[in-house]
Structure formats: structure tokens, C-alpha cells
């Protein structure tokens, strides 16, 4: 995952988003362990306390859980909840885009046309149906 220092989103949330996306995309399957604090911190070149915060946030959401002495693992329903979050986030992006388009005076038909064009440009993933954000690693 690529962290953006220019963004207003705190790093720990960016990290959480990155992990959530990875789970949604199947990089980490339910029941599998997540990288250790140290490993991930060094990999993405950031403070381990920040990674800790990200993990805490994800644990709070229920995406991951910790097993005493063994580390952190993806929850059973983890991939589903990750995908649900991804969907929510997508919905928000759509809404923002549509509001902007309406403010610029575009009609519903124009908006729908733009959406279809964009959908055709981006290739579908292996499980074609649900809109996925793609691998942001």
C-alpha cells in the first residue's frame, strides 16, 4: 500500500484502508494471520505505533481479531465485511461525483453515459459482478 502524506486522512486510517482492501481482494483470507507489527511497519516504512493504531481500528470494526501469543488474524466474516466497507466507500464516491456533476448542470442521462463509459474502460476482475476497488497495494 502507498501512504500519502499529502492527504488529510491520517496514516493509520490509510493503513487500515489498505489492509481492508487487501482482505477484500483476497490477499489475506479469513483465518490467515496478518503481518506482524514489526514486519508491516518496516515494509511500509512507518512508525509501528501507527500500524498498531490501524490494527486496533480494524479489530474494533471486527475485521480482525487477536489470538493470545499468536498474533492477529482475519476474522471469519472478514472478507465480507471488507467488501461491504469497500461498497460503502464506493457509494460515497459515486454520490460525491453525482453531486458535482449535477452542480455543473449535467442531466441524469449524461451522468449515466459517463458511468457506462468508465465501466467499459476499466477491466472487470475475475469475479466480474461486484464492483471492486482493485488492488491498491
Amino acid at each position: 500500500m502507498k501512504l500519502d502524506p499529502g492527504s488529510h486522512i491520517p496514516f493509520y486510517l490509510q493503513i487500515a484502508d489498505g489492509i481492508r482492501d487487501a482482505v477484500a481482494a483476497g490477499v489475506y483470507l479469513p483465518g490467515e494471520p496478518l503481518p506482524s507489527l514489526r514486519a508491516l511497519a518496516l515494509e511500509i516504512h512507518t512508525n509501528p505505533n501507527t500500524v498498531q493504531k490501524a490494527y486496533d481500528e480494524l479489530a474494533r470494526e471486527g475485521l480482525i481479531y487477536s489470538r493470545r501469543g499468536k498474533g492477529l488474524f482475519v476474522a471469519e466474516q472478514g472478507d465480507e465485511s471488507a467488501r461491504a466497507s469497500a461498497q460503502e466507500s464506493l457509494q460515497r464516491s459515486f454520490l460525491e461525483g453525482i453531486i458535482a456533476a449535477r452542480a455543473a448542470g449535467m442531466s441524469s442521462r449524461e451522468i449515466r453515459k459517463a458511468f457506462t463509459a468508465a465501466l467499459n474502460i476499466t477491466p472487470a476482475k475475475r469475479t466480474g459482478d461486484s464492483p471492486e476497488k482493485g488492488n491498491r497495494r
Binding site: 501512504l3 502524506p5 496514516f11 507489527l37 514489526r38 511497519a41 518496516l42 516504512h45 512507518t46 512508525n47 509501528p48 505505533n49 501507527t50
Partner: peptide, 22 residues
Amino acid sequence: CDKGQTVLLSTHSLGDIQRMAD
């Protein structure tokens, strides 16, 4: 990561601050 020291980093770079600092 290994030793958990306290760190004081004086820098101009905000990118470094975001990466390293709490």
C-alpha cells in the same frame, strides 16, 4: 521496532514526520 526507544526527530520534512512521529 526492536527496542522501543523514545525518539525526538527534528526535521523540515512533513512526510518524515507523518511516517515516523506519533
